[in-house]
Design a protein around this nucleic acid. Structure first.
Length: 596
DNA sequence: CAGAAACGGGG
DNA sequence: GTGTACGTTTCTG
């Protein structure tokens, strides 16, 4: 099966992991839910005194305790792996355990259960895996009553398989609501149209209004629009549902109208209804077993524009204007009928089709990041790059038996924000119109410094033998040359893998293969380029003012030295920023030979 | 000027 | 859900 999503449910006081997937049958793709009953949540406890700690832990209602060896800041430590009976036990018990007199510190106590599962089992969403086990009749598990879904209880660990990009069915939708007073209010303003577009050619607009277009499906009431909305999605059975600002607008609006009118929006492959997850101050709309992706946050992250309206994004990606009906005129177009109503139908469908097109352009990168970072597509599509890097490192830490540093407390966070590392070197540009400009820049300056100077939390030392350390300019921080630090080794591997993929890409002849390799190396580039920020980002688990400071100090040192050298050859710098500078060639100043 | 509040996308 | 965005712009005292 291809792993689309993951969560867990509770039955008889214990947690059951649900792997939502899809597999091919002769009749087309079929949804599958694989259940795993054999995974327990755990945290690490670093004891002051191991025996005494085990005695104190015996008083707690935990499943079991194991002693294991892990790496922490360059040292091997013996830690206790404390298993709990249920994820919900963790928040309460961890604090009590942290306060025990025999406990120094607790670690990895706040990783969501399903993410822990993916990491520990070596599974990657959007990748293939093999599952073995017993089929289960639907209805035997809470929340698994969907008829068309294959339900399986797994008897051994899922086996991850090598796989190409999965071919996924994408269904986009867009709603129009009646809005006589500006933005529509869900308590009173009805939905008047819902349009669909799929990557398999579906074009459909549901409305209670009539129109001659073949894509229009006319129904009697708003209730019927919502029912037809649910039926269409169930029939199309897409892997991915796309919208634009659908987390906060379309799905929220549909949910509120459906509640008001008593229509169930049971779109999940387990038969569950639409859910909303609070992510900070914003919502994410969740359809179990399918991946709902809101393209708005995706586009905001990957494209740099002044505005992110659907029209602007479409223009940016395809260089074409899109027909637009200003928001406050939609109710007039609806009320006036005739030609105006017809163009409203066209506009609505066009929006859904634009979403499909934008999705086809933007999703491959998100898909690849999902397969590298190893967290659900749903989450990756909504994660900031800092989060992506962090979850990538957490997985790498598990693979190399490193303990993950804790998230900063609120106090620690504000303390970190108080003092920030100095930035890159900037030389203000010299005024005037310059000719014969040359540009010099370091390729991936900061990642290169991290690797070559072994800048890492576990290599930073107070003192060291002559020649055994890299010494940073200015503050003089010491980083051991050996062994390789955790973050430098991860960045090193990412860059090596990227070089390998680029080599394969240049050798490849198949157009599709070239495209895929290109997206893969792009994803790694994105990851490597965000990784240098790990030390400077105040929310980050691997934050280190010393490391951040050392990196920028080396950066300033390199750029200034390079500029000085360039000046000797007659290049006069006119502007510099962080990892590069602009210079004009001044023949008179050139004391050396041919500057080329 | 600093800190608080609003904003984004959507109709 | 082993949880609570985010970075930037505009307003206010």
């Amino acid at each position: 099966m291809v792993l689309l999503d993951i969560d867990y449910i509770t039955e008889n006081e214990s947690a059951i992991i649900r792997l939502f997937g899809t597999f091919m049958t002769e009749k087309g793709p079929k949804s599958i839910i694989a259940l795993d009953k054999n995974f327990l949540p755990y945290i690490y406890v670093i004891p002051i005194h191991s025996e005494r700690c085990r005695e104190e832990l015996a008083e707690f209602d935990v499943a079991r305790v194991e002693q294991v060896a892990r790496r922490d800041l360059g040292r091997t430590v013996q830690v206790l792996k404390v298993f709990f009976k249920h994820p919900r036990d963790v928040p309460g018990l961890r604090d009590e355990i942290a306060n025990l007199s025999s406990v120094d510190e607790i670690r990895e106590y706040d990783l969501p259960f399903y993410r822990r599962y993916l990491i520990d089992k070596g599974l990657f969403p959007m990748g293939k895996l093999e599952v073995h086990g017993q089929p289960v009749a639907t209805g035997e598990y809470p929340g698994c009553p969907a008829e068309d879904t294959y339900l399986l209880e797994i008897s051994e660990d899922p086996v991850p398989l090598e796989s190409d990009f999965p071919e996924l069915k994408i269904l986009s939708f867009d709603i129009e609501a009646y809005n006589p007073k500006g933005m529509p209010r869900a308590e009173e303003d009805p939905i008047i149209m819902i349009s669909f577009s799929s990557n398999e050619g579906l074009r459909k607009v549901i409305s209670m209004a009539q129109c001659d277009f073949d894509f229009v499906k006319t129904v009697a009431t708003e209730e019927d629009i919502l029912k037809e909305f649910v039926t269409t999605i169930k029939n199309e059975n897409p892997h991915i549902i796309l919208g634009y600002n659908s987390d906060n607008f379309d799905f929220s609006y549909i949910n509120e109208r459906a509640k008001l009118l008593g229509i169930p929006i049971d779109l999940g492959t387990d038969g569950s209804s639409l859910k909303f997850m609070r992510r900070g101050f914003t919502n994410a709309a969740l359809v179990k077993g399918r991946v709902h992706v809101d393209l708005y946050p995706v586009v905001r992250r990957y494209l740099s524009m002044d505005r992110y309206t659907l029209e602007r994004v479409y223009w940016e990606l395809f260089g074409q204007d899109k027909e637009d009906i200003p928001g406050d005129e939609i109710c007039d177009y609806w009320d006036n009928g005739g030609l105006q109503l017809a163009s409203l139908f066209k506009y609505s469908l066009d929006d859904a089709e634009s979403v499909t097109k934008i999705g086809e352009k933007m999703l491959p990168l998100t898909m690849e990041l999902t397969r590298i970072v190893g967290q659900p597509f749903f989450d990756v599509a909504r994660m900031a790059t800092g989060q992506l890097v962090e979850w990538y490192l957490i997985r790498k830490a598990f693979e190399t038996r490193e303990l993950v540093p804790n998230k900063p407390s609120a106090a620690e966070h504000s303390h970190r924000r108080g003092k920030r590392a100095a930035g890159g070197y900037v030389k203000d540009p010299e005024k005037g119109l310059h000719e014969n400009i040359v540009y010099f820049d370091f390729r991936s300056l900061y990642p290169s410094i991290i690797i070559s100077k072994n800048v890492s939390l576990d290599t930073l030392v107070e003192e060291c033998e002559e020649g055994a350390c890299h010494v940073s300019p200015e503050a003089g921080y010491l980083f051991l040359k050996e062994p390789r630090g955790f973050v430098p080794s991860v960045i090193g591997n990412v860059l090596t893998e990227r070089v390998r993929l680029k080599t394969l890409m240049y050798q490849a002849t198949d157009e599709r293969e070239i495209q895929v390799l290109n997206v893969q190396q792009e994803a790694l580039k994105r990851l490597a380029n965000s990784m240098y920020g790990v030390y400077g980002f105040s929310r980050f688990r691997w934050y280190s003012l010393e490391c951040a400071d050392a990196i920028t100090a080396w950066g300033r040192d390199y750029i200034k030295k390079t500029m000085k050298k360039a000046e000797k050859f007659g290049f006069k710098p006119i502007y510099a920023d962080t990892d590069g500078f602009y210079a004009v060639y001044d023949r008179k100043a050139d004391s050396a030979s041919d500057p080329s």
